[in-house]
Each structure stands twice: as C-alpha cells, then as structure tokens.
C-alpha cells in the first residue's frame, strides 16, 4: 500500500520527534517555559556527529555517546548561566521566553560560524550534507531497509524504558517526579529541587543531541535544521500534553507519522500539494490541537476513561 521508503521515513522521523518532544516537555516541566533553543541542540548533535566523522573518521552511530554528553552539557550550561539566574531573580514566563529566543539566536549563529570555520579548514561542504551514504542496508521481511530505522527505534525504546525505570524505581527518580509536581513541598522534605532541574535540562539536551545524530541519515542538514525541527517539536509536545512525558513520546510519534504520511497522501492527486508544504502540516496540526484539545491527548483520556467506568 504505502511504499517502504515512506514508512521508513515516517518511523525514523517520528522517533526523532519523540526524543525531541521528550526533552522539550522535560524542560517545560521544570521552569514552565517552552525552550525556543531546544531545536538548536539537535543541530548541535548533527554537527558533533559530522565533525567526528570528518575529523576523526568515526562513524556517526559511534558518535552517539559524544553527542549525548556535548549537547547535554550545552543545555545544562544554558540552564545554569541563563535560565536559573533569571528565574531566581523572579523573571516571569515572558522574560524567560525572550531569554530562550536569545539563547536560540546565539546557538544557531554559533553553529553557523562553526560550520563556516570547519568548511574553510576542511575545504569541504559543511552544509546540506547527509549521512545516508554511510548507512547500511538491512533485509527484513523481504524488503530492504536502511539501518537508521532500526537504530533510531531501538534508541527510542531504550530511552523510554530506562527513563521509566529511572523515574519509577529509583529514589532520585521519584524525587524528580515529586519536585516537578510540587517543588515547594519537595524542597520542604529536603529534596534538592535545583539538582532535579539541572538533571532535567541535561537530559533534555542529551536526548536532542542523540536525535541530531540520526537526523542527517534522512535529511540534508545545516545549522538551520534546528529551527525547522523546533516547530514540529512544539506540535508534538502540545499534542502529547505539555505536562506529560509519556505523552511527549506519543505526541512525537503521532506528529511524525501525520507529517510524513500526510504529505505523501496530499502530494498525490487530487490534491497534488507540493512537498515543500511538509512543515506546514505540523503547523496546521499545532493550530488544530490548540483549538480542539489544548491539553493534548493525555488530557482527553481521562474523560473517556471515566465514561467507560460509569458504564
């Protein structure tokens, strides 16, 4: 029915978005501010993988741990240097949003400079590159897949499971959930809420960095790719309900599929929409979610469940 390529694209893209939405929701849960700089952490991950490959000949998949650490560090730095100081001075949501836009501009410009410097140093293109040629083909169910589908799906599953275990089975994880729900009660019980926030910000950046490693396998990449992913990430997080981590994963998967499958269907007759409108699908989805269910899908579930219970 649907070409394998489209399904591969959908799965990979959704996995990426799930990782990104997870990070965005994670930081939102701490300071209640949507982090406009989140997309650029993906771009940073892209360039970590690219640099390691070009400079050290390391295959991008092996760059995952490095991207994890580097992007996590960048995100943590932004929390320690910008958001936390502002928050402690009593900055409101609007101020924090403006600050995150400032951070975004700094990060993106920094990446542009890095790309330019790298380009003149390596005498090669540092924009519009792809990792697809580095990937492996895998035979599965009589079809040929590219390995990135498997790698990204496994990564997402591993992240989901470990996050779940961490949050529900460990003491610090439980403390994190408590600090996110009720920071003042948590701190009165002796929980270091600041540490919880710092870990959240680090994790969010780290996950984005990992997503950044996978991205060039399916899309040509440049420093602007972060901003492009940001809007979809907003959609994914809102779709999942901005307050729910599991919802973020779900939202990411749904948004990714909606966009890839949607543009595939719409680009065919009778609509014959240009594929350049692909990002517009996420934007449209964003508006729809706000109009229909601003709390996301996780807020809808309860009503349905209650109706079932009453029956």
């Amino acid at each position: 029915m649907l070409p394998v390529e489209v399904i591969i694209d959908a799965i990979t893209f959704s996995n990426l978005l799930a990782l990104l939405a997870l990070g965005l929701t994670l930081t939102y849960l701490t300071l209640k501010v949507p982090n406009f700089a989140h997309g650029d952490l993906v771009a940073a991950g892209v360039y970590v993988a690219f640099s390691l490959h070009k400079l050290c000949g390391i295959h991008p998949y092996l760059a995952i741990p490095v991207a994890f650490l580097v992007c996590g560090a960048i995100s943590l730095a932004s929390y320690l240097l910008v958001y936390r100081p502002l928050w402690r001075r009593g900055a409101g949501i609007v101020t924090l949003m403006i600050a995150s836009i400032a951070v975004e501009i700094v990060l993106r410009s920094g990446l542009h400079i890095y790309a330019d410097v790298l380009s003149s140093h390596l005498k090669t293109f540092t924009r519009g590159f792809s990792f697809a040629w580095l990937d492996w083909s895998v035979e599965m169910y009589g079809r040929t897949l590219t390995f990135v589908v498997i790698a990204s799906t496994c990564t997402l599953m591993a992240v989901t499971i470990s996050l779940y275990l961490f949050l529900s089975k460990t003491r610090f994880g439980t403390a994190m959930r408590a600090a996110i729900e009720n920071p003042s009660l948590a701190s009165s019980l002796g929980i270091n809420v600041d540490l919880v926030y710092a870990v959240s910000w680090f994790l969010a950046g780290a996950l984005a960095g990992v997503a950044g490693v996978f991205l060039p396998f399916r899309m040509p990449s440049d420093p602007e790719v972060g901003w492009e992913m940001l809007l979809r990430t907003f959609t994914a997080s809102i779709l999942g309900g901005l307050e729910s981590l599991m919802g973020a994963i779900l939202g990411g998967l749904l948004t990714g599929f909606a966009e890839v499958l949607g543009i595939y269907v719409l680009s065919k007759p009778p609509v014959s929409l240009s594929t350049a409108y692909r990002p517009a699908i996420s934007c449209a989805l964003f508006i729809m979610v706000l109009l229909v269910a601003p709390g996301g899908i996780t807020s809808l579930d309860w009503r349905r469940v209650l109706r079932w219970r009453r029956k």
């Binding site: 003491r171 009660l185 019980l189």
Partner: peptide
C-alpha cells in the same frame, strides 16, 4: 503528591 503512590509519598517524606 497526588500523582505518586502512597508508598512513594512516604519514601519522599523520609528522604532525609
């Protein structure tokens, strides 16, 4: 903490 279980609440109460 509404979203946590009773036992988890008590674990947190006994955090220190």
């Amino acid at each position: 903490f509404s979203r946590l279980t009773v036992r988890e609440n008590l674990i947190l109460a006994g955090y220190t």
